[in-house]
């Protein structure tokens, strides 16, 4: 549904994104994950045709965003980072305006506005002035605006920012409800959001894509090191050297001690379960094994790992 190829955006002094390529299938929810300033908003703005790219192409439903901008924009509902609201208008008046500029046929405008208001539960505030609404309601009006005309593609830039936990939950459910009929791209810098709502994740950092995969695969792949915590009673140097010498173990170090028991963090090779070997070695050496715990990395760790990797280079 969306094909992005070698997208690059250069400004006079800096490059915002470089050679970004990815695809989004029909009915999929793609999460765009990255720290602030990574290039998420820039990428989205190019995809929706707000700004042109310096290089590369974007196709939405077969239409090139640069050559057929109107065909692309007709197929996209876009929620920018700051919902584009006119504060002096009423909710319904605003949505009617959006319906008009999106070319919804005149006789269908009333029904369409009603439909999107029900979809995001703002029917009760339809006659209120937008300026007087709470942040949560404003965000929902922004979403309603994107839904007008029922476009097949939804591009949502930080759709849950500034909302309270209940509202975040509601918005996420709404986005999940869009999947299937709609293709959704959402950006966020909040990890649980991606894990909970997206089929696939693009992790972007400093304008470059560092990973694209399902949240599950990413976690699996990047559990780079199978991490195990052990609490052992015994001499630290000997334990460390002995465990380090074991096959499959990458690194061993203490992370604290308490009452003669020492807490070790052991990094093992990917997809190798070294727990029983570790336990056997410790027991056979006559040390006291108090605890053994496997810690899989959360997406958060992965994210940090991926986005800090370049810095070490």
């Amino acid at each position: 549904m969306i094909t992005v190829e070698n997208l690059t955006k250069r400004y006079a002094t800096k490059t915002a994104i470089e050679s970004v390529s990815f695809q989004v299938e029909k009915g999929e929810i793609l999460g765009f994950l990255g720290p602030n300033g990574a290039g998420k908003t820039t990428t989205m703005r190019i995809v929706v045709g707000f700004m042109p790219a310096s290089d590369g192409t974007v196709r939405v439903d077969g239409f090139d965003v640069f050559e057929n901008p109107l065909d692309v924009r007709r197929r996209i509902g876009y929620l920018p980072e700051n919902p584009p609201l006119y504060p002096e208008m009423t909710v319904a008046g605003y949505l009617r305006f959006v319906a008009k500029i999106k070319g919804v046929p005149k006789e269908k405008i009333g029904a369409e506005v009603k439909r999107v208001m029900e979809r995001v539960s703002i029917t009760d505030v339809q006659e209120r002035i937008i300026a007087k609404l709470s942040k949560g309601y404003k965000q929902r009006v922004g979403l309603a605006q994107a839904l007008i005309g029922d476009p097949p593609v939804m591009i949502l830039d930080e759709p849950t920012i500034g909302l309270d936990p209940k509202q975040i939950h509601e918005v996420r459910e709404l986005i999940k409800g869009l999947a299937g009929n709609h293709t959704v791209v959402l950006s966020t810098h909040i990890l649980p959001e991606v894990e909970q709502t997206c089929n696939r994740v693009v992790i972007i950092d400093r304008g470059k894509i560092v990973a694209i995969d399902t949240p599950q695969n990413l976690r699996f792949q990047l559990q780079g090191a199978e991490r195990v915590f052990m609490e052992i009673q015994g001499p630290v140097p000997e334990i460390t050297s002995k465990l380090k010498a074991m096959p499959g173990v990458i690194d061993v170090h203490t992370v604290g001690s308490n009452d003669g028991r020492h807490r070790f963090q052991i990094e093992g090779e990917l997809k190798k379960d070294i727990r029983s070997d570790l336990a056997r070695t410790v027991v056979q050496s006559g040390w006291g094994l108090y605890e053994l715990q496997s810690a899989s990395m959360s997406l958060e760790d992965i994210f940090l790992k991926l986005t800090t990797a370049e810095e070490r280079e």
Partner: peptide, 9 residues
């Protein structure tokens, strides 16, 4: 809101 106008069809 310029973003709305410039991304509308």
């Amino acid at each position: 809101t310029i973003e709305l106008l410039l991304t509308a069809p």
